[in-house]
C-alpha cells in the first residue's frame, strides 16, 4: 500500500514536535514538508530529518500531499484548514478547533463540501487509562453517570498563547477543551448549559489564567472543571488531566499522568515527576493515519472539536454576563 503523504503546517504549538516524532518512525507515512513562516522554529526538525522546508504553507499545499497537520496559533486554524480543504487535503487540526462558533462551523462545512476529513487533535482520547475508562463506563461498571469533576491544571505557556488576538483565549480556552471532549465522549451527550468564572489570579498577564466551569448535559449529567494555569514553577510536573466520575453504581477516576516516578535531584532542587506511561500522541497519530489510509471516518471529528470548544466560548460569555449560558441548538 502506498505511503500517506503528510505535510505539517506551523510549529507554533509545541505539540507539532511530538506529532512529528510519532510520524517519523512510521513506514506508512512520508513527510513531504514542514511549512512555517519562522524558519528558525522548524529548522531543528527539517534538515536533520531530511524534510523539506516551506516558508509559505500555500506552497506546501500545492504539493501532492494527502493530509496536513496544523499546529498554528489558534486564530489561524480556520484559515489554514479551509485552504487545505480547498486544496483537497485531509486535516488534523490542533485543539481548540477554532476561536468562534461561526468559524468552526465553516471549517466543518468546507471540509465536508471538499470531501476531505477533518480531525481534531484530542490526544487524551488515546491515553490508555481513558481507553479503559471508556470501556468500563460503556460496560456499565459504575452504572449511569451522575456527575463528573475534571481538572486540566497546567503551567502557563508563553508567547502567542497569552496574546488574546492569536490564542482567542487563555487558560479557559486552552485547558477546557480536552476534558470537555472526554466528558462528551464518556457521557455520549451534549452540553446544554455552562456557568463559569474566568479570572486572572496567578500571573501578571492580561489574559485569563484561572477559571471554574459548571456544565450541565442534556442527559442530566452535571460537571465541574478547573482549567487554570495554576501549576507553579515549584510544582513537580507541568500539570494534570484528572476526572472523577460519579455513577449510580460506583466511582471511576482517571489520573492520566499518575504513572510516574518521584525524582529528587540536586540538579534542579525541586521534586519532579517523571512520567513513564504510554505516549498518547502516538495513539492520536496512528488513529489519524490509519483512518485516512483506510478511508474510514476519523475517530475524533471536526464536530467533536466544535462541541468542546464552544463550551469554553460559552464559559467566557457566562463570566461576562454572570449568568448560566444555554448553548444554541
Amino acid at each position: 500500500m502506498k505511503k500517506l503523504k503528510i505535510g505539517m503546517i506551523s510549529f507554533a504549538h509545541m505539540h507539532a514536535a511530538s506529532y512529528l516524532h510519532a510520524l517519523l518512525p512510521r513506514e506508512d507515512v512520508e513527510i513531504v514538508g514542514i511549512a512555517d513562516e519562522e524558519e528558525a522554529r522548524v529548522s531543528p526538525f527539517t534538515a536533520p530529518n531530511g524534510i523539506r522546508y516551506y516558508k509559505d504553507y500555500m506552497d506546501l499545499l500545492k504539493e501532492p500531499v494527502d493530509a496536513v497537520i496544523i499546529c498554528s496559533e489558534n486564530s489561524r486554524h480556520a484559515e489554514i484548514t479551509k485552504q487545505a480543504a480547498m486544496a483537497g487535503k485531509h486535516v488534523l487540526c490542533e485543539k481548540p478547533l477554532g476561536i468562534s462558533e461561526e468559524e468552526m462551523l465553516e471549517m466543518i462545512a468546507v471540509c465536508q463540501s471538499q470531501g476531505v476529513q477533518l480531525m481534531t487533535a484530542f490526544p487524551c482520547r488515546y491515553l490508555t487509562s481513558v481507553v479503559h475508562a471508556k470501556q468500563a463506563i460503556d460496560q456499565g461498571e459504575i452504572g449511569d453517570i451522575v456527575a463528573i469533576k475534571g481538572t486540566n491544571r497546567g503551567t502557563m505557556p508563553q508567547g502567542w498563547f497569552i496574546q488574546q488576538e492569536l490564542s482567542g483565549g487563555g487558560a479557559v480556552l486552552d485547558h477546557t477543551v480536552h476534558v470537555v471532549d472526554l466528558m462528551n465522549y464518556f457521557t455520549g451527550s451534549e452540553v446544554e448549559e455552562v456557568y463559569a468564572h474566568v479570572e486572572t489570579l496567578f500571573h501578571d498577564v492580561e489574559i485569563d489564567d484561572a477559571g471554574m466551569l459548571h456544565i450541565r448535559y442534556k442527559n442530566g449529567v452535571f460537571a465541574v472543571h478547573d482549567p487554570s494555569w495554576s501549576r507553579t514553577k515549584s510544582f513537580p510536573t507541568w500539570g494534570d488531566v484528572t476526572m472523577e466520575i460519579i455513577g449510580t453504581k460506583g466511582v471511576l477516576t482517571v489520573d492520566a499522568f499518575a504513572q510516574k516516578n518521584d525524582v529528587y535531584s540536586d540538579q534542579v532542587m525541586k521534586a519532579q515527576w517523571s512520567y513513564w506511561g504510554d505516549n498518547m500522541d502516538e495513539g492520536l497519530i496512528d488513529s489519524f493515519v490509519t483512518s485516512i489510509r483506510s478511508q474510514e471516518p476519523v475517530s475524533i471529528s471536526g464536530e467533536d472539536g466544535y462541541l468542546s470548544a464552544r463550551v469554553a466560548l460559552a464559559a467566557y460569555e457566562s463570566a461576562r454576563t454572570g449568568r448560566p449560558v444555554k448553548l444554541k441548538e
Binding site: V146, K149, H197, L201, F222, V224, T248
Partner: peptide, 28 residues
Amino acid sequence: YAAISRSDQMEYAQVTLKFKNKRIATLS
C-alpha cells in the same frame, strides 16, 4: 453556584464559591 444529585443511596454535590476578592473555591 451548586449542582446536586440525590437518591436513597447517595447525595453528591458540587459547589463553587466565588469570593469578594475574586478567588475561587470548588467543593465536592
